Computed example of a mutant assay.
Amino acid sequence: MRTGSTIRRAAVALVAAVVLAVITPGQAQAAVFPPDPVRLTAQVVDFGNDAWVLGAPLGSGSVEWSVNQNGFYQATLRGYLHLDNAPLEYGRMHMEYFDGAGNSMGVIHGGKVRAPNNNSHRSWSVDLHSPDHLQVVQVEICTETSSNGTSWTPVRCSGRLLL
């Protein structure tokens, strides 16, 4: 079922990229697909939307897919990283990106943030992009924590999200 969806989305992307290239030569091109919702919850670190209710984000963040100005698929992660009840703990987002054969092409990390020295809740906006010079068709999103800001441990991962 997921393969058929991937093929349909790839065909739509190709048609959209060709149409945009003909209509607006030399300009940035973008074809937007339905975003993939991403909501990751754990004891200390969460990812989702900016609404915080009963110890977790109420809704999801998202992975948005587009065709960039180079004609490559690109994934953009948007949402909010939450740290709660985690005095002086660090957190960050992790996006691993893959080609069409499922081979990992690399990992990009969001900026590291640090919780205050109390048990309060804090959140930070996330806007992470896969490289614009690679054909990215799958991503895996993870939250990570660290007690020292240098050694990181994955906490929760999304599983692979396909274009």
Rank of each mutant, 00 (worst) to 15 (best):
Q43D: 13
G59P: 09
G48V: 05
T76K: 13
P35I: 07
R39K: 08
L40N: 03
P34K: 10
V38N: 00
L40V: 03
V22G: 11
L54D: 11
D46T: 12
G26D: 06
Q29D: 02
A42M: 15
D36L: 00
L40Q: 11
Q69K: 09
T24S: 03
R39W: 12
L40T: 03
Y73W: 13
V32S: 09
V18Y: 04
Q69I: 06
Y73S: 13
G26W: 02
V32R: 03
S66R: 12
T76H: 14
A21K: 12
Q43K: 11
A28I: 08
R39T: 12
Q43P: 13
A56L: 15
D46P: 07
G71M: 05
F72Q: 14
A75F: 04
D46F: 07
G55P: 08
Q27R: 11
L54E: 09
A31G: 04
P35D: 11
G55D: 10
G48W: 08
D36W: 07
W52S: 06
N70H: 13
Q74P: 04
A21L: 11
L58N: 10
D46K: 06
V19P: 10
D50P: 03
D36M: 06
G59E: 02
G59V: 04
I23R: 12
V32Y: 01
A51T: 05
R39E: 10
Q74C: 07
S62K: 14
A31V: 00
L40R: 12
A75N: 02
V63D: 08
V18N: 05
N68G: 06
G71P: 01
T41F: 02
V63P: 02
Q43C: 14
G48K: 04
N68P: 02
A42G: 15
L40W: 02
A75V: 12
V53C: 09
P34E: 10
F33E: 11
S60F: 14
W52F: 07
F47N: 02
P35E: 02
G71S: 11
G71H: 10
N49F: 13
V38R: 13
G55M: 10
G59A: 04
P57Q: 11
V32W: 06
V38Q: 11
Q43W: 13
A31I: 09
V22A: 13
V53L: 06
T41H: 08
S62V: 10
L58I: 06
A51R: 05
L40M: 12
G61T: 05
D46R: 08
E64A: 05
W52E: 04
L40H: 10
V32N: 10
W65D: 09
V63T: 02
V63L: 02
A42W: 15
P35W: 05
R39V: 13
L54N: 10
D36P: 01
T24W: 11
F47R: 01
